[in-house]
Structure formats: structure tokens, C-alpha cells
Design a protein around this nucleic acid. Sequence first.
DNA 1: GCGACAG
DNA 2: ATCTTGTCGC
Length: 208
Amino acid sequence: MIGGLDVSYVKGDPVTACVGIVVCLFPSMKPIHVHTEIVQMTEPYISGYLGFKEANTIAEQIQHIKHERPNAYPDAFLIDGNGVLHPRRFGLACHVGVLTDHPTIGVAKSLHFVDGVHKNIKARCSTLLIKPGDVVPLSTDSEEIIGMALKPVAGVKNPIYISVGHRFDLETAVWLVKTCCHYRIPEPIRLADIYSRQHLQRMGFSKS
DNA sequence: GCGACAG
DNA sequence: ATCTTGTCGC
């Protein structure tokens, strides 16, 4: 089993949010557990410090399912954000991994600025990522590979950026994420996003 | 000073 | 993150 988490927000309301968690069977990606919960955020979003804003609430959901639904507790969690592909090599996925002492992988939809890694990457990806499964290593000036850009499925132009969060090696992480992708975003995270924002709407937090 | 900046 | 239906293209 593989789990995914995502946090949705309300426009103009920096406090109210909804955290969603979805657990899927592997590798079928059939969802076997879904939970969403309204939460109150206390910290602001500051680029490079996402972990300080979302890690606690995400970790709480993981502990919750671990105790309430032990038979649906997955082998690892996919987190929307970065792992060691981070200015200080410690993004949101690392925070969550340490707090829960469980394997995590960071999956970002856009490339966060990391000194030394951002050179020519965008251009290289557009030319090197041809078929599904193709990857482009994201390395530091010191040849240290801290993440990987992956073309998850056919048709998508923008890659997703994968990095180790906790108790994983990059190759295994990329393989795992790849098999979770039916669309650009791996199913556990994609579904967690859908259900969490759906919950906010049904609570009367929509915009129209 | 300018640019860059996960969710 | 959020604003958001139809629509162009394979």
C-alpha cells in the first residue's frame, strides 16, 4: 500500500485548510482508504520553509490513520513538496518522515529554487524527457544528485520533481512514483487533493 | 541592486 | 495554494 497527502486552502483565508490522506493498493492504485479533515494553520507560507507550515498537520494525519486504521497503514507516503531537493536539503517530506519515523518521498509539481541546481534544467528537460519514465538528474555543483525530474506519463509536458524524503534511495523512489502515475500527479496525492478541496466546498467555503 | 522562490 | 469551462489537438 502507498499513501498520499495534500493540503487545500481557502482563498483569502490563511487559517482554514483541509488535509486529505488517501491510501491505495500497490500497484493497482485502487484507493482503499480516504480521510479529510478541516484544520487550522498557524504558520505562514515562506518559500523554503513549507515544512514549518504543513509538516505537523500532515504528520498528525499519518499518526491518526496508524492508530485508527492500522490495516490501512501504507508502507510509505508521497508528500506534495520536496524532500532533500531543498536549499538546506531538508524539505517538507523530510520533516514528515522524521516526525512519523516512516518512509516518505517528496513529489513537487514545480522546481523549487536550489542554488546550483537550476542551471539549464528547464531547457534540458524539454529536450531530454521524451517518453514516459525518462528522467533528468538534478545535481548540485558538487555532482551530488539530490533529485530527479520525471516524465510520468505520455502527453504531459511538464515533469514532476522527485526527491528522497526519509528512508528511501532515489532510484527506488522514482520507480515507486512512476508506477503510481496514471496522470501527471501520482494517484495517492492527486486523489488526496481532489477530496480535500471537495470537503472544503461542501463545508461552504467555495468562491461562487 | 536584480533575479529566484515547493504549497 | 487560489481563480476555473470549454476547447484545441492527438
